[in-house]
């Protein structure tokens, strides 16, 4: 388990099994198979195109995340989601780094195209403990230097919900209910934590977490739109290159056997087996 992505695959797979068996997720086996195969296939073709070795882990993680979050009616939407998710890693790049968390980008693209939906309420509140432990365990094994973004987000966003409740004079049951959300934990542990699309320096990541929390609050409580976390992440990811420029630091690399190359190298893809969790 030298590569934290193996652990992520196991956790995401277990959550998916739990969701399908215990929570009756509206995702069929054919959708799961389609998402996984199309994601792997797209990664394979794209790897060949840019001439880097094929790595199955990242696309598998991306596709499992899509299985957990994306709900579609048609097979074409399912295929499209997997293609957009993986292709975004190869096509939308800045300074040798992909800009968006691939799953996040794929989900938002499908929402914009009105080809599918995300059910933030699907987890209920019973799954909370399982989630929290999976996430905490993940961070322990992960030991990635990027766990700070998760902690920072889990500090800022609840603080925001709490502050709002105090300002409105609402009982604590309301922010607690808002926090007992599987969607929130999945986002915090498995999406915003993506080391490939968060700023390189710690201070940058904490700033990033703050921006995501504030944007999500704005979308939820001012614009009254659902899926505020996904929208907030996609908006703030566009600022990551700017934060990296202001607060430069060394680029994150997965703990794999592939020798690192310099960022200036035109084949710099090789040093960046893409994405964590949802990448």
């Amino acid at each position: 388990m030298s590569d934290p992505r193996h652990y992520q695959i196991a956790v995401l797979g277990s959550l998916l099994a739990y969701g399908c068996l215990a929570l009756d997720f509206a995702v069929g086996w054919h959708q799961i198979v389609t998402l996984v195969l199309v994601a792997l296939g797209t990664q394979m073709l794209a790897s060949r195109w840019v001439d880097i070795p094929f790595d199955w882990r990242s696309p598998l993680i991306s596709s499992l995340s899509l299985c957990l979050l994306l709900r579609t009616e048609t097979a074409s939407a399912t295929v499209l989601a997997a293609v957009i998710t993986i292709a975004s890693k190869f096509l939308i790049r800045l300074r040798g780094k992909h800009v968006f968390n691939p799953t996040n980008f794929g989900l938002i693209a499908i929402l914009l195209l009105d080809a599918g939906w995300v059910s933030p309420g699907q987890w209920g509140s019973a799954a909370l403990a399982a989630f929290a432990f999976a996430g905490l365990g993940g961070l322990v094994v992960f030991r990635a230097r990027r766990a700070d973004v998760t902690w920072a987000f889990l500090l800022f966003y609840p603080a925001l919900l709490l502050a709002r409740a105090i300002w409105l004079g609402d009982p604590m049951a309301i922010p607690l209910h808002q926090l007992q959300s599987g969607a929130l934990l999945l986002f915090a542990f498995f999406m915003i934590s993506d080391p490939k699309t968060t700023p390189d320096r710690r201070s940058g990541r904490i700033l990033f977490a703050l921006l995501v929390a504030l944007t999500a609050g704005f979308i939820r409580f001012v614009l009254f739109q659902p899926n505020e976390l996904l929208w907030a992440l996609v908006c703030c990811s566009m600022l990551t290159p700017l934060i990296d420029r202001m607060l430069p630091a060394e680029r994150y690399r997965w703990q794999t056997a592939i020798p690192p190359l310099s960022d200036s190298d035109p084949t710099a893809f090789r040093v960046q087996p893409k994405g964590v969790l949802a990448s």
Partner: peptide, 15 residues
């Protein structure tokens, strides 16, 4: 971590 545990353990307040 304490916060997370509080979220899990806190009894819902009547509203």
């Amino acid at each position: 971590t304490t916060l997370c545990v509080a979220l899990i353990a806190a009894p819902p307040v009547a509203a």
